[in-house]
């Protein structure tokens, strides 16, 4: 098979992406119900946005879906390193490249080529992976602040770690909004994350 005929997103990435969407969705919605039990900000999430029905149900969902997210995340990280996906596609961009691509994106002049990642995409996708890892690490630190005491101390103690966990949730939600909005603008990217659509040819930028 020629290089240009390779799928924009390899099958393992597509599978792990959708398992991740389900796991993160469960974590997010049940997390909002848990947040509502003791809100640290002056607002609560409406009941229709939450999962679990009440605190115990939400916690059962949260520590159940946790394993799915953990397994999916580990599999994705290992795949990303071994396959070269991270090195090839998600290399951290330079600030200048982000500035240039962001400027073009805001003027709707940034072409979207399936299977190739511009600087803004590298920043967003690389960033959300780091944020997800921080969400998992802070989550573990507030789940087991005695058994994982050094991790909790690293995040500044239980109340601060809980605040960081909540902040990471906010950043993931913000990423999801931008991500879904961009997919709505370029619907063929949704097709390529489901079916084995060939990557676009690389064009010089």
């Amino acid at each position: 098979m020629e290089q240009s005929r390779a799928a924009a997103h390899p099958l393992p990435v597509r599978i792990m992406h959708w398992i991740g969407v389900y796991a993160i969705g469960c974590m997010m919605l049940s997390g909002w119900e848990i947040y509502n039990a003791s809100p640290s900000l002056p607002f609560q999430f409406p009941a229709w946005m939450t999962l679990g029905g009440w605190l115990a149900g939400a916690i059962a969902w949260h520590i159940g879906a946790m394993w799915l997210l953990f397994a999916d995340g580990i599999a994705y990280l290992m795949y990303g390193i071994v396959s070269g996906h991270f090195r090839r596609d998600l290399r951290p961009p330079t600030p200048a490249a982000v500035g240039a691509d962001l400027g073009r994106a805001l003027r709707f002049r940034l072409p979207h080529r399936l299977g190739h990642y511009n600087a803004v995409q590298r920043l967003l996708y690389g960033g959300v992976i780091v944020i997800l890892m921080l969400a998992v690490a802070t989550g573990l630190s507030i789940w087991k602040p005695v058994q994982f005491g050094s991790l909790t101390a690293l995040f500044g103690g239980y109340p601060v770690a809980r605040g960081i966990h909540l902040t990471m949730m906010g950043l993931i939600a913000a990423f999801a909004i931008v991500h879904v909005a961009l997919v709505a603008i370029y619907p063929r990217t949704l097709v390529s994350m489901v079916a084995g659509v060939p990557a676009d040819p690389e064009t010089p930028s």
Binding site: C26, A47, T50, G52, G53, A56, G57
Partner: peptide, 24 residues
């Protein structure tokens, strides 16, 4: 009461998972 509350309304969780599961 919780079951009644849950049955009473659709939720995002309910929509996503096709069921209102709260351990009860």
């Amino acid at each position: 009461r919780r079951r009644g509350l849950l049955r009473g309304g659709l939720s995002l969780g309910g929509l996503a998972l096709l069921t209102g599961c709260d351990l009860s």
